[in-house]
């Protein structure tokens, strides 16, 4: 019984990442090309967008700030799904996906904070405001860093996978808090910073470039995520092969 289980486990271990590698190799050039194309179109559209009568040219920051903020939450959601995959279905790639996504998510969150404060300085007159939306995004950034620290702290990937998955799931509480912080703590929040994706509040001349940029950055995220996952699989293979090499070298000296 246990033999059969271990055999199927080994089979999944071998076949799934290998299949993923060949799949990624086929998809990645197309995905990368599409990303560059969409981002170029989005960049051109956002440069040609008219200035806002209130915000002037700073409205252009919105075209990158909103996609970054959105991706920072989407990345964490993907990591939470991957954490479920690790804990519930024990999918061997879920852990790789979560580990590869964490640094990318941290970078996008940092960029959302940087562009947000560069937008806040001319609009609010200050780089930083301690309101609910900003605090919760900052907390998200700290959680990304904590997860990265935890994944790097343990040598055994199998052990760190479960620990990280549990931590990721506990931290998922923060995502709805970020999403609804503008609605829940309306009194604290400056109304000028309320950005809704709803088309009704946004003129089509801004909505179109914003959507194209959002799609472009989402494609960028998936491209980078897939590449980082591939790197991670290769890294694990290298460690496994080094171990085999060390063992055979050891055996060679003994015999």
């Amino acid at each position: 019984m246990s033999d059969a289980v271990s055999k199927t486990g080994r089979w999944i271990d071998l076949a799934n990442p290998t299949r993923f590698l060949s799949l990624a190799g086929g998809i990645l050039p197309w995905l990368g090309g599409l990303t560059v194309l969409v981002l170029a179109i989005g960049f051109w559209m956002s440069m040609n967008a008219p200035d806002d009568y209130q915000q002037g040219s700073t409205v252009k920051i919105m075209f990158i700030h909103v996609p970054f903020a959105w991706l920072s939450m989407m990345c964490y959601t993907i990591m939470s799904v991957a954490a479920l995959g690790t804990l519930v279905w024990r999918h061997p790639l879920a852990d790789v996906s979560a580990k590869a996504a964490a640094p990318i998510g941290a970078v996008f969150t940092a960029l959302a904070l940087i562009t947000g404060s560069l937008w806040g300085k001319p609009m609010w007159g200050t780089w930083w405001v301690w309101d609910a939306r900003l605090i919760s995004v900052f907390v998200l950034f700290l959680m990304y860093l904590g997860i990265i620290a935890l994944t790097r702290a343990m040598d055994d990937p199998a052990k760190s996978a479960k620990a990280t998955a549990i931590l990721t799931l506990v931290g998922f509480i923060n995502i709805p808090i970020i999403k609804f912080s503008v609605d829940w703590w309306n009194t604290l929040h400056q109304p000028a910073s309320v950005l809704r994706m709803g088309g009704s509040t946004l003129d089509p001349s801004y909505l179109k470039p914003l959507l194209v940029m959002a799609i472009g950055f989402t494609l960028l995220f998936f491209t980078l995520h897939m590449m980082a996952m591939r790197n991670e699989i290769w890294r694990r293979r290298v460690t496994a092969m080094r171990r085999v090499a060390a063992r055979s070298a050891d055996r060679g000296t003994v015999s």
């Binding site: 200035d51 002037g56 700073t58 990158i64 960029l111 562009t115 560069l118 937008w119 980078l224």
Partner: peptide
């Protein structure tokens, strides 16, 4: 009316630099 080109350029520049590093 208002020119905040520096801030726009800074935010796009920061995004490009950080993403390029990643």
């Amino acid at each position: 009316m208002m020119s905040h080109t520096g801030f726009v350029l800074a935010s796009y520049g920061a995004a490009i630099i950080v993403l390029a590093a990643l």
